[in-house]
Design a protein around this nucleic acid. Structure first.
Length: 768
DNA sequence: ATTAATACTTAGTATCCCGCCC
DNA sequence: GGGCGGGATACTAAGTATTAAT
């Protein structure tokens, strides 16, 4: 990987210029963000006048545009003040929000068209007025009872009992024939059951998208849950599993032992060979030791975790070798935990929680060259946890003998519990599942904002094209950054604290060493070569021909800078976003990613798909369109560990199939010849058979070859991220309708649940 | 105007699980 | 019937963006 690269050393530490140097800038609007920062990376560079010099010829008048209000902007562009552009954004300004959102009203109409009558409606409107705990609990109870007593369920149970009964009889009777019959029937019954369940689920689904939205930042009116689920306490090792220091067995205190085990469990992982990881681990481990232990254990190299490691491996092995029954028992136990802790009641609806389990302690595994890798991630106790729920709800009980840090009732946030994590000092939250109302609504909003960008993207583009010629350095930098964000779907690139995280960058935090300028490259003019580590230390490498003005600006920005200096030294993400939100309500840098991803999917689908294709071809086309987006967004994955092997296996299969085909062809020829010579019926039949064999072989071969290319193309590309986070699901739903492809071919169950709102409301004529 | 805190989305990897092939 | 490939799910790190505090 290019990950080892120069960044580690190449990144220049701040050679701070003192603040008084900046006095020269005073009065100048364009102030470097870095020069004002105490840890400036920007070194002595020419003063702003020099930087600005080339601009002087630019006759562009002082630009006021930056400060124009949205209305002005739209007026200037000759656009009517779009009604729906007010969508949900007012609330961000803390103003009262308009009561009805246009898009919602519109959609509501659509949804209702196909709405099935359900008793739920009544309950909802009933509860809309006021939520008392009593009411909610009552509803919940009723729901449960309803479910329990539903005739459907009773019937199901009956069917199941019958099956069980039959199985018993069957096993006692004539084993073979009855058994087969049984499985067949069982399958049938299972099918029916499944369908019933599906239908039921559909009935139960909360169609929140047909309801009124809450005003302001209110996220819920009633919230009740059981609190988080804690991992089991540490069980000290049995005496026969020993830890050795310097060749001598040492019985560790439970606290030190637990941490030692964390390390031992990872011994087969590359992490444990890295110095940073080892040092961080050792430092934190020693903190957990008793005085004596700390005195004794001073060198990690002298530690022998062999027996701990072995024990861990044995455990993993044992788990793998568990019988079906044992596994079933565990599964059921887990199910029970999910039933109890995995759901909450939100405004009278039962919603799945996304991560109700507290993260167990362990060693921190950062991505890439993380300076904190190997540090101890401490066990979270109830005393660390803040609970958020309704005042009038049943407040979750802390585990026996413990207390919560705090219980609060804040309905302007969506989390149920939170705690501060010790490694990075950041906050972690327990929140709802992606299929919940809270997440779904936000997702819908996100795509609506991105969609709105469609209407003004042209003017925004022409504006930043103009800004490339601005007199002000700041404006130019912003324009170039925006150009990258728009054209290449780069992330915004917030500033990060040095030394706290791996050295990764986004657009605004690009440094001069991350790009190379080529006047001419591979027949293209003005090529920028990007090479940097982005989010999750995924390498972004790309050679892009850019507009001449952009190229020249870049050269200017890089003048008199050296490795480690910011490319956009006068730009921050918040300034950029401030500017963007003045152009369109709700517009931020990341909206461009969503917008470009979705619009690309739509275009690609239109371009590639053919109504007359068969289903497999259509699906291939969908995947290709999806892939185009994934490539644009640089969604990569490590090639599966087994990739080479499985590819070779597939190739071997293809080869052997080819041989088979050749042979079959030969035989067919022979058979044909024989059949011709004496037209015996038998021979003809043989010939037909051979023919079919050949055909089958060819089909299989083709399928495998397609599979091979598909897999090869997907080697390093992850489709799921874009599918889940960037592609407006309504595009896909509409495409399925138009192409007559079942939605299940595109979205699995989880995805259909997450996008239930889109599945329900989208017609074939949807346009992003 | 910065910085810090907060809240929430986006991201890749590990693991589970299930059907398929030998 | 056991291993294997791959999809689904679990997990949690790492981003973005806004708000609050200084």
């Amino acid at each position: 990987m290019g990950g080892e690269k120069q960044y580690k050393n190449g990144r220049r530490k701040s050679k701070t210029r003192r603040l008084d140097d900046d006095d020269q800038y005073s009065g100048d609007v364009t102030k470097s963000k870095k020069t004002l920062k105490k840890t400036s990376k920007v070194d002595k560079r020419p003063k702003s006048e020099e930087m600005e010099k080339p601009l002087k010829k630019g006759e562009t008048p002082e630009i006021e545009v930056l400060d124009i209000k949205k209305e002005n902007f739209e007026r200037a562009l000759g656009q009517p003040k779009s009604e729906d552009s007010d969508f949900q954004m007012e609330k961000k300004k803390g103003k009262k929000k308009r009561k009805d959102d246009d898009f919602r009203v519109e959609m509501k109409g659509r949804g209702q068209k196909r709405r099935r009558e359900s008793e739920r409606t009544e309950g909802v409107s009933d509860l809309a007025e006021g939520h008392t705990a009593e009411k909610n609990r009552k509803v919940k109870r009723e729901e449960e009872e309803q479910v329990d007593q539903a005739p459907e369920m009773k019937r199901k149970k009956k069917v199941k009992d019958e099956i069980d009964m039959e199985a018993k009889i069957g096993n006692e009777g004539q084993a073979v024939s009855v058994k087969r019959k049984k499985t067949k029937e069982e399958l049938e019954a299972a099918k029916v059951l499944k369908m019933k369940k599906k239908e039921e689920e559909e009935q139960q689904r909360w169609r929140w998208w047909e309801e009124e939205k809450y005003p302001d930042g209110i996220k819920w009116k009633f919230l009740e849950h059981k609190g988080p689920y804690f991992p089991p306490e540490y069980q000290p090792l049995p005496d026969d599993v020993r830890f050795f220091y310097n060749g001598k067995a040492v019985k560790l205190s439970p606290a030190a032992e637990e941490v030692a085990l964390f390390f031992a469990q990872m011994l087969d992982h590359e992490y444990t060979t890295k110095d940073v990881f080892r040092n961080n681990f050792f430092k934190d481990w020693r903190k957990e030791m008793t005085h004596e232990e700390r005195k004794l254990i001073t060198h990690l190299e002298k530690c022998d975790f062999g027996e701990l490691f072995q024990m861990h491996k044995d455990k993993v092995e044992a788990r793998r070798n568990m019988s079906k029954e044992e596994k079933q028992i565990i599964k059921e136990a887990n199910q029970k935990i999910v039933e109890e802790f995995g759901y909450c009641v939100l405004d009278s609806h039962r919603e799945r929680i996304g991560n109700f389990k507290i993260e167990p302690p362990g060693l921190f595994r950062g991505r890439g060259e993380h300076p904190k890798q190997g540090m101890l991630k401490k066990r979270i106790r109830p005393e660390d946890i803040i609970i958020n729920c309704s005042k009038d709800s049943h407040v979750p009980e802390p585990p026996m003998g413990h207390q919560w840090k705090e219980v609060r009732h804040d309905n302007t946030v969506t989390w149920l519990a939170s705690w501060a994590e010790n490694v990075q000092g950041s906050c972690k939250y327990i929140m709802l599942n992606a299929n919940s109302k809270l997440k779904g609504e936000k997702d819908w909003e996100k795509y609506e904002v991105a969609r709105k960008l469609t209407t003004c993207v042209d003017s925004i583009r022409s504006q930043y094209q103009q800004d490339l010629k601005s007199k002000q350095m700041k404006t130019r930098q912003r324009a170039v950054a925006l150009y990258f964000i728009d054209k290449l779907a780069l992330r915004a690139g917030n500033e990060k604290e040095e030394g706290e995280t791996a050295d990764t960058v986004g657009c605004c935090s690009l440094r001069v060493e991350h790009i190379a300028l080529h006047e001419r490259l591979d027949g293209d003019q003005h090529v920028v070569e990007f090479d940097f580590l982005g989010k999750d230390c995924i390498r972004y490498y790309n050679k892009v021909p850019v507009a001449k003005k952009v190229f020249k600006n870049l050269r200017l920005f890089m003048e008199n800078k050296q490795e480690g200096d910011d490319l956009f030294d006068r730009l921050t993400t918040s300034e950029l976003n401030k500017h963007l939100s003045s152009l369109m309500l709700g517009l931020t840098a990341k909206v461009f990613r969503t917008y470009n991803a979705s619009i690309t999917l739509q275009q690609q689908l239109r371009e590639l798909s053919n109504a007359s294709d068969n289903q497999a071809q259509k699906l291939l086309c969908y995947n290709r369109a999806n892939r185009a987006v994934a490539v644009l967004c640089n969604h990569q994955r490590a090639p599966p560990k087994t990739f080479e092997q499985s590819m070779a296996n597939l190739q071997a299969k293809i080869d052997s199939r080819k041989e088979q085909l050749a042979q079959a062809k030969g035989e067919l020829k022979q058979a044909k010849k024989e059949a011709k010579e004496n037209s015996d019926k038998k021979l003809l039949a043989v010939m037909e058979k051979k023919k079919r064999t050949v055909q089958r072989c060819e089909e299989q071969l083709l399928r495998m070859e397609v599979q091979a290319t598909d897999r090869e193309e997907n080697k390093q590309v992850a489709l799921s991220t874009s599918k889940l986070n960037y592609l407006d699901p309504r595009i896909s739903v509409a495409w399925c309708k138009n192409m007559d492809v079942p939605l299940e071919k595109i979205y699995n169950k989880t995805q259909r649940d997450k996008f239930a709102w889109a599945v329900d409301m989208t017609e074939a004529d949807f346009e992003f």
